[in-house]
Simulated scan of single mutants.
Amino acid sequence: MTLVTEKEPRAVRRSASPGRPRQRAGREAVAAWVLVLPFVVLFLAFTAGPVLGSLGMSFTDIRQRDLRTPFAVNGVGFDNYAKALSDETFRKAAFNTAYFVVLGVPLTLVVALAAAVLLDRGVKRFQALFKVGYYLPVVTSIVAIAVIWRFVLSPDNGLVNTVLGWFGIQGPNWLGSTTWAMPSLIAMAVWRNFGSAMIIFLAGLQGIPQSVEEAGQLDGAGSWQRFRYLIVPLLRPTILFTTVTTGIGYLQFFEEPMVMTQGGPLDSTTSVSMYAYQQFGFGNYGLATSMAYILFVVIAVVTFIQFRLLREK
């Protein structure tokens, strides 16, 4: 009996070769690295390099006069960090930043959520117009907004004090008072930034199935009960995202006091970012970078706490 075997097609024999998949994977890896090489070079040159360089500067006594001989500076360990933490103005700036964040973030999120609920449930006509109107301050230059608000809060002929004067109320010097300067900056920041969180909240609300509210309504839950016990828990991931992003932004607030108050009066609106910037201007590069990294650690810790408290359970 003769055994007849059919010859395998060439394509099958080629694919069965163990070396070809390996060669193809190698070529794909090379092609991938070629495509990402520009990003890697730019990242190392303009992000990772400066970050590592500034971290090294924070442990030296480098000043403006040392720029021509940057490798001749002396290491000082954690002296810059100790000096920053013992600086009375830096502690005042840290308190101002905490004040701005503790009041500003909750107010921004509450206003944003209220506007999102209003657009999702109440306003049906011209909804797109309201979205654009609320979001427009977010994409407007913060410097332009700060200049306009400085005129609005002017003690002599500002819009706010003019309106208060119609009711016989003498408005204060909003930006020149140690009592009202920071609340004024917080009010401006809430007005400018709530539109961004509102858009995110609105997307979260529209992603909740209508059947959830219908089930709660059938169980006899009122509007507030449905919102408190059904909608808000389902919005937990959205609340986490907006809280983290808003908190990180507010911890770094800089343009508002820089343009509107220059940190005054009596350093009542000086922020950590602004004070570190001023130290850079004075040529205290080691001290300034240590302040920046203290702020970085605070941001990381606050973000970690927010994730722990608001994560899904």
Rank of each mutant, 00 (worst) to 15 (best):
K124L: 14
V143S: 13
K124V: 06
K131T: 00
S141K: 06
F126M: 12
L136F: 15
W149I: 06
T140Y: 06
V143N: 10
L129T: 11
A115Q: 03
A128Y: 01
G122K: 13
V143E: 09
L136D: 05
L136N: 03
R150T: 14
L118N: 10
S141R: 03
P137H: 03
V147M: 13
L118T: 15
A144L: 14
Y134Q: 01
L129V: 12
T140G: 03
A128R: 13
V138Y: 14
L119R: 04
I142C: 00
Y135T: 05
V138E: 04
V123I: 15
I142F: 10
G122P: 01
V132N: 05
F126P: 00
F126K: 09
L119K: 05
R121A: 11
A128G: 12
V123S: 03
V138G: 05
I145K: 04
V117N: 07
L136P: 04
G122A: 13
F130L: 08
I142A: 13
K124Q: 14
L129I: 11
V138L: 02
I145F: 08
L136E: 03
G122N: 07
D120Q: 11
L119V: 09
K124C: 00
R150M: 11
V143T: 10
R121Y: 10
L118G: 15
S141P: 08
Y134K: 03
F130G: 02
L129C: 08
